[in-house]
Simulated scan of single mutants.
Amino acid sequence: MSFRSLSVGGANLVPFPGRTPGATAAHRDPLPVLIVLHQESSTPGRVGNALRALGHRLDIRRPRFGDPLPDTLDRHAGAVIFGGPMSANDSDDYVRREIDWIEIPLREQRPFLGICLGAQMLAKQLGARVAPHPDALTQIGYYPIRPTAAGHTLCPDWPDQVYHWHREGFELPTGAELLAEGDDFPVQAFRAGHAFGFQFHPDVTYAMMHCWTTRGYDGFGAPGARARHHHFADRAVYDVVERAWLKQFVDGWLACRPVLAQAAE
């Protein structure tokens, strides 16, 4: 199943709607957010923290280990597919099922966020190519991004550099709006209606960074990768802005929910 015929033209590309202060608290039981993770030890990190702070429960699923995905998002406020060491090009059944499943939030126009692998899955669902850098470059550590005019309109105060851990990138899907760009991997953030894809990792907490840089030490020898000590030195410089930007993004992202979904609560 594919959703490549989806119209994601300029009519959908508008700034986040404003959220009335206390609007989330006004709902006695906000809908949960679907969380898709790819390893037994994975967590939703800072994205999960931001969602919980808004009053949302987390419905955590791991399709890789047999968890099903819902047939509709009528009972969810939105969905997030996180990263992992696998590739969106892998032939594993759960990888293909997740890519196909993204058709549901796209068709139902529900808030969807893909982070790193999740963004690559979204790009593939929309018909874009996912591939390694032609010179085998990687991004492991902090790297600069440049928000576009559309990115600034949507959500101001982007960080100058953000955290990455990936060996592949993706093209901008046809009809999608580029929100942030980079050098070696040009597409860093994009929007297609209510769906967003980030090549970078705003979800990574300090504890997660310790874990990744310990277990993933073999990645530091890859072309373009930053040495481990730079990860923590750069975090001290860039993380405060990235954390504040993420909170602002998550709040506006969930405010994109259709009126009918909100009324259902």
Rank of each mutant, 00 (worst) to 15 (best):
P105K: 11
F198R: 00
P85W: 08
A227H: 13
V237T: 15
P186S: 11
R257T: 01
A225E: 01
R228H: 13
F170C: 12
D184A: 15
G83L: 04
P68Y: 03
R52N: 13
L13D: 14
P111R: 02
I115N: 01
G127C: 04
P159T: 05
V130P: 05
D71Y: 02
P156G: 07
E242L: 00
L246K: 01
A244K: 11
I99K: 07
G219N: 14
W165G: 06
Y163I: 09
A236G: 14
V240M: 09
E181Q: 15
F112I: 04
F232C: 08
D100M: 11
H76P: 02
T214A: 07
V80E: 01
G141Q: 07
R57P: 01
G45P: 03
A261L: 10
R96F: 04
R96H: 10
A23I: 06
R46C: 00
D239P: 02
E108T: 04
D29Q: 13
R57E: 11
Y143C: 05
R52T: 15
I35F: 00
F185M: 07
Q39V: 09
D92K: 03
R243C: 12
A88M: 10
S5A: 15
D239F: 09
Y94G: 03
A50M: 11
D59R: 04
L154Y: 03
W245S: 04
H201P: 10
R243M: 08
A222E: 15
W253Q: 00
A149W: 02
L260T: 10
P70V: 10
V36H: 02
N49F: 07
I104R: 13
A264Q: 12
A264S: 14
T153H: 06
K247C: 00
M209F: 08
R167K: 14
A88Q: 09
D183A: 14
P15I: 00
R226N: 14
G114L: 07
P173G: 09
V80F: 02
T214D: 14
A123T: 06
Q120G: 02
V36S: 06
C256V: 01
P63N: 09
L31Y: 00
L246A: 01
Y217N: 09
V14W: 06
A189V: 11
V259I: 13
P132L: 06
G84K: 03
H38C: 06
H38Q: 14
A176G: 04
L172K: 12
I60T: 09
A123N: 10
D71Q: 13
L172A: 07
Q248S: 13
M208D: 15
